[in-house]
């Protein structure tokens, strides 16, 4: 018998592994439903029809060194796919961008010229970090992520303009990045990383030990400087007991409007049904809705070949000249 068995016998919940999400800034949230954060079982689901799903991908890799200057090839893409009556998904909006990233003013003239002549889309970055390769790459990563976020935002706005009368748009990630999107009555953000903390005390405990098939009370989230206020709540798709506190836990964002509070239970019930089919083999299938996974797989299949493989999967063994 392991020693933690005794803890379980004394009333603790068994756990296994853990999820570490990147820590993000999160402001205190104000409850907009009830005075204290409560948990609510979800009702019988009703699935809206049609629904569109938006997701994006990013890829980058260093492709050349001009001295210590790392020249990066980057690719971002996003797509909206609409679900038809038979449950099939069809692309309605799609965008992609392949571009180079380099600190142009730090490059040798010949290489810079070659770069500018051969790539139509070059994004220049400041040159301060060039001599600190690790931080430079963090900056590159942030640049690519921003490009992707911008593309997703634009695509979301475009899709919402075109949304049918009772159609919903489900976005992978924050809703609050664009004011138009954040205020739309039928847009939902589905967030699966919980680096940002909005709750504390008893409310936090209730949220993190939420049983499967339950949601929390709705609270208001005021994000960073550019972010528009949205309403949010937690929803648990799969039992966390025996796994970890974040297992199967989603945070949903919808517009800051009394209707959101009124609808939170019905929307939760709908999203709960999206647990199946499982988004395996994705590692975070417990929190990834299959249609969002599907959009990502679609984008991956269409990404340029040379960027399809993840760097981590590539062999680090020295290459032999052939």
């Amino acid at each position: 018998m392991t020693w933690w068995r005794a803890l379980v016998d004394a009333g603790a919940v068994p756990g296994r592994g853990s999820t570490r999400d990147e820590v993000e800034a999160g402001a205190r949230a104000d409850l907009v439903e009830e005075n204290e954060l409560q948990t609510h079982p979800i009702p019988e689901p009703r699935i809206p029809d049609p629904v569109s799903f938006l997701n994006g991908i990013e890829r980058w890799s260093v492709v050349a060194y001009d001295g210590v200057v790392q020249v990066v090839n980057a690719y971002v893409a996003a797509a909206v796919r609409r679900r038809d009556a038979t449950g099939g998904l069809h692309t309605t909006f799609e965008r992609s961008r392949g571009f180079a990233i380099a600190p142009l003013d730090r490059m040798t003239p010949m290489v810079r010229q070659a770069l500018e002549q051969s790539v139509a889309d070059v994004e220049s970055v400041p040159s301060e970090l060039v001599e600190q390769p690790a931080r430079y790459l963090e900056m590159i990563e942030a640049t690519v992520r921003r490009a992707r976020a911008r593309m997703e935002r634009e695509l979301a706005e475009e899709a919402l303009d075109d949304l049918a009368a009772d159609e919903w748009l489900v976005i992978d990630g924050l809703l609050s990045r664009s004011p138009d999107v954040a205020r739309h009555p039928r847009a939902l953000g589905v967030i699966k990383s919980h680096g940002a903390q909005f709750l504390e005390g008893r409310g936090l405990e209730r949220a993190l030990t939420l049983p499967a098939g339950y949601r929390t009370s709705v609270f208001a989230v005021r994000g960073g400087h550019t972010r528009t206020e949205v309403y949010s709540w937690y929803l648990r798709l799969w039992p966390w007991e025996g796994n970890d506190l974040l297992y199967g836990l989603l945070r949903i964002e919808a517009r800051a409007h009394p209707d959101t509070v009124a609808r939170a239970s019905a929307l939760s019930a709908w999203l709960w049904t999206e647990r199946a089919p499982l988004a395996t083999p994705a590692t975070r299938w417990d929190r990834l809705l299959y249609p969002l996974h599907h959009v990502e797989e679609y984008l991956k299949a269409r990404a340029p070949r040379d960027l399809q493989q993840r760097a981590s999967r590539m062999s680090r063994l020295p290459r032999l000249a052939s």
Partner: peptide, 22 residues
Amino acid sequence: LHDVVGAEGDPTRADEAPTARQ
């Protein structure tokens, strides 16, 4: 197994999933 998990072991629910797999 993943289909079983998705339907929580209930064959009558196996077809309830809103999205059809690719």
